[in-house]
Amino acid sequence: MIFRKSEPPQSPEPEPQSARPGSKGRPTRSRKEAEAARRRPLVVDDRKEARRRDRERANRERMESQQALMTGDEKKMPLQHRGPERRFVRDVVDARRNIAEFFFPIALIFMLVALVLPLIRPELTTLLSTGMIIILWGGIAVCVVDSLFLRKRLRRLLSEKFGDVQRGLVGYGIMRAIQIRRFRLPRPQIKHGEMPR
């Protein structure tokens, strides 16, 4: 009589558990695996490739900041143009008509005339040079007076809106006022005569 071992009854295969809500659906990796994935060499093997990547990244950042200066997107602007105070200063300057922005193109035209006219009419050289000096120094004096009025106005408006006036903000506004409106960066976001926000 041969006795056979009775095989234990086979249990049904466990059903795959459905992932519970909010879970990752995979096991958490060990600390050793996470550190190995994060580890990068301090000095890369291919230096040319690293330089090329750095150059591309710098070019991309420069293009983004240039685009931001055109569109007024403050998140990507260079640091010297960011912040509500600087935006307010830009708006105050762009809302008024500044004498310097008109004077400098006119002064440039006068200088070109002063260079060319003596070649055509040499007898007018003395008269022309005297007139040019008077016009240029007079224009510069008017621009300085206008800048003093702008300085006083910026200080008053900034202290009303933000309290203490941050160092450099007034100078930032005066430098912007000297530039021709069309060539200002960041581009003006406000029209002449419009009240700054």
Rank of each mutant, 00 (worst) to 15 (best):
L115E: 11
N59R: 11
S65C: 06
R52N: 00
D94T: 08
K76R: 09
A95T: 14
R47W: 09
A68P: 01
A37M: 14
E123T: 14
E85T: 06
W137R: 10
L112D: 03
E61A: 13
I120D: 00
M77Q: 09
P84Y: 00
V44C: 12
E56F: 12
S65R: 13
I99C: 03
E74D: 03
L117W: 14
L127H: 05
R82Q: 07
E101W: 05
M111C: 01
D94E: 05
K75T: 01
A34I: 12
P122I: 01
R60Y: 12
A58K: 15
L115I: 05
A68H: 00
R90G: 03
I106D: 02
K76N: 11
D94C: 08
D46M: 07
R53Y: 05
A100F: 04
T126C: 00
A50C: 10
L117V: 08
I133L: 10
E101Y: 07
L79G: 13
I135F: 15
E85P: 03
R57N: 11
R31V: 06
P105H: 08
L124H: 09
F88H: 15
W137P: 00
E61I: 04
M132Y: 04
N59M: 09
A107I: 00
A95V: 03
M70Y: 08
L79F: 15
G83C: 02
R53E: 13
A100P: 10
Q80N: 15
T125K: 12
D45V: 07
W137Y: 15
K48V: 12
L69Q: 02
I134D: 06
A114R: 06
A36H: 12
I133S: 12
D73E: 14
Q80G: 04
T125P: 10
S129K: 12
N59C: 07
I135E: 05
H81A: 04
T130K: 15
K32H: 00
R51K: 10
V44N: 13
I135T: 11
V92R: 06
I135P: 00
S30F: 02
R39Q: 13
P118S: 05
E61P: 05
G83V: 13
P84R: 05
F102T: 04
D46C: 08
R90L: 01
E74N: 09
R47K: 09
A36W: 09
F103D: 00
T71K: 02
T125V: 02
V89S: 00
A50P: 10
V116L: 13
R47I: 11
D46R: 07
L119H: 11
I120P: 01
R38D: 13
K32S: 04
H81W: 03
L136S: 02
V93G: 04
Q67I: 09
E33L: 09
M132I: 08
I135S: 13
D91P: 03
K76I: 07
R53A: 13
